[in-house]
Simulated assay, not measured.
Amino acid sequence: MKNIIIIAAAAENNALGKDNQLLWHLPDDFKRFKTITTGHTIIMGRKTFESFPKPLPNRFHIIITRDRSYTTPYEQCAIVHSLQEAYERAAQEETVYVIGGGEIYSQAMADANLLEITRVHASYEADAFFPEIDPGQWELLREERHPADERHVVPFTYRTYSRRQKSR
């Protein structure tokens, strides 16, 4: 596996969600997420998986849970019990996407080489948060701003970060 990419939408205060629900509705961000992740393996925690009505189409899901008795009837899903086990399960993949939640993001930050972040320009009360992005570790490669409009009540910015190379 060459690329471990974290993809997330996080508010200005790093809020991700509350009660296993997103805090905003951004159709263009959903479309971007689908475009980026379709055809790839996605790694997520159990609660993130359970927030979907069913598995996302055209993606292989690796679900991390501490619950050793957890199962899913879906063929396009695998159950593992650690992030390391998720990486081993996806070892043949060129690129995997880590899609949440907060605890999985925190664990994966040390392994990721790219971040695809949608920064939602508001702050929210939440119970799941994205980890801080350390500018000493991450370089902003590009950003694309989106104002609020009739479909998006809050402005947001797509930001792509690359892990900084360690100097010798």
Rank of each mutant, 00 (worst) to 15 (best):
D29P: 04
D29S: 14
D29A: 11
R32L: 04
K34M: 09
T35Q: 10
T35R: 14
T38E: 12
G39E: 10
G39L: 11
T41F: 06
T41W: 06
I42K: 08
I43T: 05
M44C: 10
M44A: 04
M44T: 03
G45H: 03
R46T: 09
R46E: 13
R46P: 13
T48M: 07
E50Q: 15
S51E: 04
S51D: 05
S51I: 09
P55V: 00
L56T: 03
L56F: 07
L56V: 05
P57L: 08
P57E: 11
N58W: 00
F60C: 00
F60K: 09
I62L: 09
I62F: 00
I62Y: 04
I62H: 01
I63L: 06
I64M: 03
T65D: 01
R66W: 02
R66K: 10
D67R: 08
D67A: 03
S69L: 06
S69D: 13
Y70S: 05
Y70I: 03
T71F: 01
P73L: 09
Y74C: 07
Y74T: 00
E75S: 12
E75G: 02
Q76H: 10
C77S: 12
C77Q: 06
A78K: 08
A78G: 02
I79A: 02
V80S: 03
V80W: 06
V80M: 08
Q84L: 12
E85N: 00
A86Q: 01
Y87V: 06
E88W: 01
E88R: 13
E88Y: 04
A90P: 06
Q92D: 14
E93Y: 13
E94D: 15
T95Q: 04
Y97C: 12
Y97H: 12
V98N: 03
V98P: 02
I99G: 01
E103H: 08
I104Q: 02
M109Y: 06
L115D: 00
L115T: 02
E116Y: 02
R119D: 01
H121Y: 05
A122E: 10
Y124R: 04
E125D: 15
A126N: 03
A126D: 04
A128V: 09
F130Y: 04
P131W: 09
D134G: 09
D134E: 14
G136Q: 11
Q137K: 15
L141R: 13
L141W: 03
R142L: 14
R142I: 13
E144W: 07
R145W: 11
H146A: 04
H146S: 06
H146E: 09
P147A: 15
P147S: 14
P147D: 15
E150H: 13
E150G: 04
R151M: 12
R151P: 02
R151W: 14
H152M: 07
V153N: 14
V154G: 02
P155V: 08
P155S: 08
R159T: 07
T160V: 15
T160R: 12
R163F: 08
R163P: 08
R164W: 05
Q165N: 13
S167K: 15
